[in-house]
Design a binder for these strands. Structure first.
Lengths: 212, 212
DNA sequence: ACACATACATACCGGTTGGTATGTAATCGT
DNA sequence: ACGATTACATACCAACCGGTATGTATGTGT
């Protein structure tokens, strides 16, 4: 290991790049700005990353994916009550995330909307993370189905895709409205949708009511 | 009226700007590119629009809003069977729109994700259009409720917000996956959600099944 | 017919961008 | 101990950006 601790430097760049990209988008993210936050220079950046594109891809893989992993994927995978876990994550996500994340949007969604049509490598990288998300929800629904919590006639693949889509849509719209309240209301409806996939217990369950 | 038909010139610029912005995003949209498509020059553009920002705002108001108006808002408003109309629009939207619109994303959503956190005027303009969308769906649900088609316990405001959010989410995710099929599947689930808001007729209705 | 406004075209500008070439100090392998 | 490699810093560059100043041809109002 070198005294200058290259891995630590790399992480500093990655983190700063993540913040800048989250705020400005990838294309508008300025390498100069990213470096200014770290006190490093271009020499350091272009030593660790060959291009700006490579830096962006690394941010997706090593920052964004990891955060989603910790925040969403792992809780779903680790729980042996997958439906309960899914409903819990949906219900509490807005408290487990910094407030400005609603104002700035989901980092993954931001990049998807900006880059998917422009850069194939970005598209693939982002699609990979989204695929994990989708398959994690899918697996939770599937296991819930095996446990009898989810109705047998539910197409869990299509439902999982929709859950993820609506999820991102909720963040996106809330971001546009700059309204954490809208996010909360919207996620509550997603909660209702998932409940609608469940087998009716004894009480006739959900409707769609809450505050305005 | 002048021989050079300024309104026509303005429209040409607006349309070209819409296309460039749709493909590249607003910030990455190059004024030079926009003008190249039209055969005009910067003199023309900066005669009709004081800044690039003003051009972008005009694109939202005069192109994007109008397209949504025609494609979504009007059908919902004009129908006296609002729930049926809503379900129909959701079911057929993918056929009423050019194929590359899925690949390039919803122009409104693209701009929301890119600009809402960066520029307050953009945020307001976009929020305005989104608000019309939301209120249009809201009104359709409300009227459906009065007609007894929508259950009385449904919070139509929250449901409308969710419908719009999920709608945009579906396009966004389909764009990332570059998959019109995913869009179709996703919208079908949104269809299921809306059906779930309806009063049970005699048949016990929807589930959630379709192709993989 | 003549002053003036409109509707553009052309040429130019300062600032910023991602990227590179070069320099250098520290560390590692042997 | 010493060459090679790593890990940066510094200086620089061509390309492109949005925007402006100026020029000009074509109208319109009177």
């Amino acid at each position: 290991m070198q005294t200058k601790q290259p891995d630590l430097t790399r992480d500093k760049i990655l983190h700063s790049a993540f913040c800048e990209i989250h705020r400005q988008g990838f294309q508008a993210a300025s390498i100069t700005n990213i470096l200014q936050d770290t006190g490093l220079t271009k020499g350091a950046l272009y030593h660790h990353f060959p291009t700006k594109q490579a830096l962006g891809l690394a941010v997706i893989d090593e920052v964004i994916k990891q955060r989603l992993e910790q925040l969403i994927f792992r809780p779903l995978r680790d729980s042996d009550k997958p439906v309960e876990a899914l409903l819990d994550v949906i219900a509490t996500i807005n408290k487990k995330v910094p407030a400005d994340f609603v104002m700035l949007g989901c980092p993954l969604n931001n990049l998807m909307q900006e880059m998917s049509a422009l850069d194939q490598l970005f598209q693939q990288q982002l699609s990979g993370v989204l695929g994990i998300w989708q398959r994690t929800v899918e697996d939770a629904l599937k296991r819930g189905q095996q446990q009898g919590e989810i109705r047998a006639d539910v197409d869990y693949k299509a439902a999982a895709l929709f859950v993820v889509s609506a999820w991102e849509g909720c963040i996106g719209v809330a971001k546009n409205m700059q309204s954490p309240k809208a996010f909360e209301s919207c996620m509550k409806q997603l909660h209702v949708y998932v409940e609608g996939l469940m087998s009716p217990p004894r009480k006739k369950a959900q409707g769609g009511r809450q505050s305005r």
